[in-house]
C-alpha cells in the first residue's frame, strides 16, 4: 500500500554525481559475484572435503598395508558394492520395505491417535502412558520377545520399526493439534464450528509443521528400528535385509561387503532425511516461518 523508498532516488544519485553512481554499480557487481561464489562453494566445499577424507582413508590403508579383513579401503568397498550388487540390492529392497511400511503405519497410527488424544482428554490420559512405555523401552530389549510372539518375521520386524517410529509423530502431532491460536479457536466457536470443522480447518493445519518435524525424526528412526530388529532376528530369521547381510558378512570375515551394506544403510537414511525435508519445505514454503526465506 505504502511505498517505502529504500534506495536513493535517481535525483539523489544525480546530486551525488556520476562517480557515486559508478561506484554503486561496481559494488552491486561485487555483491552479485560474491553471492554466486557462495552458491558454488556450498556444493563444492562439502564434496571436496568428503573426497579428501576418502582419499586419506585409501592412503592410510595402502601405506600401512592394512589387511582387507580388518579395514578395506574405499575402492575395495566400492568394488564389493558393484560385485555384490545382486545380493545387496535385494537386501536393500527388503529393508526399505520394512522401513516404509513401518513409517506408513506410524504416520496413520500416530496422527490418528493424536487426533483421538486431542478430542478427548480421558483417552489421552489413559493411553499416553502406554505410548511412553513403548518409547522408553529399548527396542533391542523387546525385539527378541516380539520375534518369539509373532509368527511371521516380516511382521515382527515391522512392529519393531513401527514402535520406534510412531512416538515422535504421535507426540509432535499432539503438541501441534493443541497449539492452534486461541483467538482463532474463539472465532471458530463464534461461528458455530463443530468438532470436525475445527479439526479440519484449524487444528490439523496448525499441527502440520509439528507433524512434519516429527516425520523427519520418525523417518530415520524407522530405518534404525528395522535394522535393529533385523539384528535381533539374526541368522535365525528368514529375513535377508541389510542388517542380515552385515551379520552374514561378519561371520565370513567379508569386511568389504560389511562396509558396502553399511554404506547402503547410510545412503538410505540420508535419502529419507532429504525426502522428508523436501516434503516439509514444499508444504510449508508459502506460510510457515521455518520454510520462508528471510529477506535480508
Amino acid at each position: 500500500m505504502s511505498t517505502v523508498l529504500e534506495q536513493p532516488t535517481l535525483a539523489d544519485r544525480a546530486a551525488l554525481g556520476g562517480d557515486a553512481a559508478a561506484t554503486d554499480s561496481a559494488a552491486a557487481d561485487a555483491h552479485a559475484r560474491r553471492a554466486r561464489r557462495e552458491r558454488v562453494l556450498r556444493w563444492v566445499a562439502p564434496i571436496a572435503i568428503a573426497l579428501a577424507a576418502l582419499g586419506l582413508w585409501e592412503l592410510v590403508v595402502w601405506w600401512n598395508d592394512v589387511p582387507h579383513y580388518i579395514l578395506p579401503g574405499p575402492s575395495l568397498v566400492a568394488q564389493s558394492l558393484v560385485e555384490d550388487w545382486g545380493t545387496l540390492s535385494g537386501s536393500l529392497l527388503v529393508t526399505l520395505q520394512v522401513t516404509f511400511m513401518a513409517l506408513a503405519v506410524a504416520i496413520v497410527g500416530g496422527v490418528g491417535l493424536a487426533v483421538l488424544f486431542s478430542l478427548s482428554k480421558w483417552v489421552e490420559l489413559s493411553l499416553f502412558p502406554f505410548a511412553v512405555v513403548l518409547q522408553v523401552t529399548p527396542i533391542v530389549a523387546i525385539a527378541p520377545l516380539i520375534l518369539i510372539y509373532v509368527d511371521s518375521t516380516q511382521v515382527a520386524l515391522l512392529i519393531c520399526a513401527w514402535i520406534v517410529a510412531f512416538f515422535p509423530i504421535l507426540s509432535n502431532t499432539t503438541l501441534g493439534l493443541n497449539s492452534a491460536d486461541h483467538n482463532l479457536q474463539n472465532l471458530f466457536e463464534l461461528y458455530g464450528a463443530n468438532r470436525w470443522q475445527t479439526m479440519r480447518f484449524l487444528r490439523l493445519p496448525a499441527a502440520m509443521p509439528y507433524f512434519l518435524g516429527g516425520l523427519k525424526i520418525a523417518g530415520g528412526l524407522a530405518l534404525i528400528g528395522a535394522i535393529v530388529a533385523e539384528f535381533a532376528a539374526g541368522s535365525a530369521g528368514t529375513g535377508s535385509g541389510l542388517a542380515y547381510r552385515i551379520l552374514e558378512a561378519g561371520y565370513r570375515l567379508d569386511i568389504p561387503r560389511m562396509f558396502a551394506a553399511l554404506v547402503l544403510i547410510s545412503l538410505t537414511g540420508i535419502a529419507i532425511f532429504l525426502a522428508s525435508s523436501l516434503l516439509s519445505h514444499l508444504l510449508l514454503r508459502r506460510w510457515h516461518e521455518s520454510a520462508v526465506k528471510r529477506e535480508s
Binding site: N183, N186, L187, G192, F201, R286, W287, H288
Partner: peptide
C-alpha cells in the same frame, strides 16, 4: 469479532481467511 491481533490463519490465502465464516456455515 475483530481481535487486537489480525488472527488470520497463516496457512490460508486472504480469500480463504475471509471465506472461513461462510465455509463453517
Amino acid at each position: 469479532f475483530v481481535f487486537q491481533e489480525p488472527t488470520l490463519m497463516p496457512w490460508a490465502s486472504v480469500f480463504d481467511n475471509v471465506y472461513l465464516p461462510l465455509r463453517l456455515q
